[in-house]
Amino acid sequence: MAVEFAATAARLAGAAGWLLHWCPDNFWAATPAELAAVLRAAAGEDGEAAVTRADLTAMQERFPDG
């Protein structure tokens, strides 16, 4: 079981680094649900409408960085 986990974690960490440009800290801080959602979206399997520029602008106004 531990060998299976280690192999799967290594494969997923590699995919996250390559596809998402995540460093190891980002990978290990993400929950399995977060990683799955991001990988589904990156693969175009989300099924929901993409975020529009208007959506992004509204989020930036609601949650400013500074």
Rank of each mutant, 00 (worst) to 15 (best):
C23Y: 07
A49G: 14
A58I: 01
G47V: 01
H21E: 04
G14K: 06
A9C: 05
G14A: 00
A37L: 10
A50L: 07
F63P: 01
A10T: 15
T8R: 15
D25Y: 04
R40L: 05
D65T: 09
A36N: 05
V3W: 12
D25T: 13
T52F: 00
V51C: 15
F27N: 07
A49I: 04
D46I: 10
L20I: 02
A54E: 09
V38E: 02
L20G: 01
W28E: 04
F63G: 01
A43L: 11
R11C: 05
E61T: 10
F5A: 10
N26R: 15
P64E: 01
E48I: 10
E45V: 03
H21P: 00
A10S: 09
P24Q: 04
A58D: 08
L35T: 13
Q60I: 07
L19T: 09
A49P: 04
R62N: 02
A58E: 10
W22G: 01
E34A: 10
A58C: 08
A58W: 12
P64A: 11
A49M: 00
A13G: 06
E4D: 14
M1F: 02
C23L: 12
L12T: 07
W22K: 11
A36C: 11
L39H: 00
A2L: 05
M59R: 14
A15C: 14
N26V: 05
D55T: 04
M1S: 11
A43K: 11
T8E: 11
L39V: 04
A2G: 14
A2R: 14
G17P: 00
M59N: 11
P32N: 00
A41Y: 03
A43H: 15
R40H: 09
A9R: 08
D55V: 02
G14S: 07
V51I: 13
A9Q: 07
A30K: 03
Q60T: 04
V51R: 14
M59Y: 13
F5R: 15
A42C: 12
A43G: 06
T52G: 01
G47E: 01
A42Y: 06
A30G: 01
P64F: 03
L19Y: 08
F27A: 00
L35G: 09
V3T: 13
L20F: 04
G66L: 05
M59H: 13
A41T: 08
A15L: 13
G44A: 06
V3N: 12
W28S: 10
A58F: 04
L19M: 14
